[in-house]
Amino acid sequence: MTTEVSDIKEAARLWAVRVGDPAFDDWDGLTRWLEASSAHLVAYEAAVADEEWAAAALTPKPD
């Protein structure tokens, strides 16, 4: 993995953490970051999917 890719993943995770706050209000900042590279959206969606997976795993639903 190149440094650049892991940097993007790390930045994406930080955005996913921040957006998760009910008080998050830097939507324009997120917009600009997403616009900067198409790789950013991919990484952001992966970060969101990862944390949603973990949260779902911690709250098992009876089926």
């Binding site: 993943k9 998760g20 992966a46 944390e51 997976w53 973990a54």
Partner: peptide, 16 residues
């Protein structure tokens, strides 16, 4: 808090 959360998110992504 933000650092702790980022640490957790990173670890959980690796686990997944």
């Amino acid at each position: 808090v933000e650092k702790d959360l980022t640490k957790a998110y990173r670890m959980l992504a690796e686990l997944r």
